[in-house]
Nucleic acid binder design. Structure first.
Length: 512
DNA sequence: TCCGGTGTTGGTGTA
DNA sequence: GTACACCAACACCGG
């Protein structure tokens, strides 16, 4: 329980503020300009901090936002405020582990008691690894088996009430506002006029409202199957609760148990495709990120296939800036930049396109772009999913390539999604909206959009380049298996591979 | 140790 | 409309 003089730091909410600082305030601002947090994410975070401050004020307290490098700021504060206790939420990201270790040892030097809680994930991630014999599970099934053994996640505890806080005094004056107030976009040197409508305001209140709104739809929750939700609907086909979970506005455990309530006594979908399943995917990638070295890199990452990706700044810029000439891809990248959220399958489409599908650019480059632009950008999930999509780890069927033309058509024949985000194409007829370069000149003129002038030509020939890339992936995999295993055991593996065609024939004969 | 089945969410062509 | 083979042939799991 809180006592006089306690310092409460809400760790998940101020992560970005404390990240990558230089030596002083100026350098910290510099890191904002070049760093990994885009303006939409800043806006979300600021909203979340305002909401948190608002909730704390209802408890006769407030939020203090510190500016500077944690190892400089904390020792001063320990002395100035006579701090006796420091509490934080355990965070498994390497940057955070390092920071928290430093701050913890400084706290001990100042005789400040440090208490941390594991609450960002459903389970204690290290416990999952331990249960699997010291290794992170590399398949979802394996993770499922482990959590089965561990039982359901802990129940969330309720937020503090006014009566819990009755002996707590938080002294502050108007002067504190200047020093400890919540930063504004202007203070961060960001141009807010470029911002679009705030579709997903940050904060716990909004998170809980959004959760309620979705949990009311019992039938929808019970029949939810992620792969069946369209990536290109005009409004999101999934909950968009991920940014709230990422920033600690919504506890994964609260989400989990609310779902359990909705499921109770009803027929419902199951992991991996259900909503429970989505939370377990989060757990899956968190476990990988803790148990696998260099998880956000290809080199030095033991589970990651080593691929000779190209360095192609022109292609990368075209992808990032939504000018690949493939309307489906460009529309998704536009939505990402404008709104900070895109559907999971839309992420698949653009990630496959950037890496193994078309442009043959390293998934690490895509990872950087997503980290900056996604409201729900999460270190572990971002790295894990990019490895998945590029068929570098976890997923290996590299010959399954998303078509930048056909994939979107399945759920949006008329291309309304494309027209929404690429207004330049809005007069294109459905027959050509996914492939405007195929439209006759007269159609382009009638649509008021000439390909090559008003909208770019496609930067690659998908049919050709994707076939070539499958071959390159095949080579990377072949190299992988020969590198990993030069022992005679692998000889048999090779033999088996060579026999696979006849094996298939035999199988066919047996069936008949 | 071997074998067969499976893997959250592909595309295309044919019957 | 739907089911299936094919693309090419990996990693992992369980029997």
């Amino acid at each position: 329980m809180l006592q006089n003089g306690d310092l409460v730091i809400i760790q998940t909410c101020n992560k970005a503020l404390l990240k990558d600082p230089g030596k002083g305030y100026q350098e910290w601002l510099l890191c904002v300009f070049t760093g990994s947090v885009g303006i939409n994410r800043w806006r979300f975070l600021i909203g979340a901090l305002k909401d948190l401050d608002c909730s704390l004020r209802k408890l006769n307290s407030r939020l203090f936002v510190l500016r500077g490098k944690p190892e400089d700021v904390f020792p001063k504060l320990f002395n100035e405020w006579n701090v006796t206790k420091l509490t934080y939420e355990y965070d498994t990201e390497p940057y955070s582990l390092n920071r928290d270790e430093k701050v913890t040892s400084l706290a001990r030097e100042h005789e400040v008691e440090v208490i941390y809680k594991i609450s960002h994930t459903l389970y204690n991630i290290e416990r999952i690894i331990e249960e699997n014999g010291g290794k992170p599970p590399l398949t979802y099934k394996c993770l499922q088996a482990i959590v089965q053994k561990l039982g359901p996640p802990k129940k969330p505890i309720s937020a503090p009430h006014l009566e819990n806080m009755k002996d707590v005094k938080t002294p502050w004056s108007e002067k504190s506002e200047e020093k400890y107030g919540i930063p504004t976009l202007e203070e961060l040197g960001l141009e807010s006029t470029s911002l679009g409508e705030e579709l997903f305001p940050g904060g716990e209140q909004e998170a809980l409202r959004r959760l309620d709104e979705h949990m009311k739809k019992t039938a929808w929750v019970c029949s939810f199957e992620k792969p069946k939700t369209p990536p290109n609907s005009l409004s999101p086909s999934t909950t968009v609760l991920s940014p709230y979970v990422t920033f600690g506005c919504l506890s994964a455990r609260t989400f989990w148990w609310r779902l359990t309530e909705v499921y109770r006594g009803r027929k419902h979908s199951d992991p991996p495709v259900s909503l429970h399943g989505q939370l377990l995917w989060r757990e899956f990638f968190y476990t990988g990120s803790v148990g696998i070295n260099n998880f956000n890199k290809m080199e030095g990452n033991p589970v990651c296939t080593q691929v000779d990706w190209d360095t192609n700044p022109e292609y990368l810029a075209a992808w990032r800036e939504a000018r690949t000439g493939f309307p489906f891809i460009d529309a998704i990248m536009t939505q990402l930049r404008q709104e900070g959220w895109i559907h999971h399958l839309a992420r698949h489409a653009v990630a496959c396109f950037l890496t193994r599908g078309d442009l043959w650019i390293s998934w690490e480059e895509g990872q950087k772009v997503f980290e900056k632009l996604l409201l729900d950008g999460d270190w572990a999930l971002n790295a894990g999913n990019w490895q998945w999509l590029s068929a570098s780890a976890f997923f290996h069927q590299f010959f399954r390539v998303y078509s930048p033309i056909a994939f979107g058509k399945k759920t949006d024949k008329t291309g309304d999604y494309i027209k929404k985000y690429l207004p330049v194409l809005k007069k294109f007829p459905p027959d050509y909206i996914y492939e405007p370069w195929k439209a006759p000149r007269s159609v382009q003129q009638a649509a008021g959009c000439i390909v090559g002038k008003d909208y770019p030509h496609p930067i690659v020939l998908h049919e050709q380049v994707s076939k070539k890339n499958i071959q390159r992936m095949k080579e990377a995999y072949a190299k992988r298996s020969s590198d990993c295993n030069e022992s005679p055991i692998k000889e048999q593996g090779v033999k088996r591979k060579a026999l696979s065609v006849s094996e298939m024939l035999q199988k066919k004969i047996r069936k008949e």
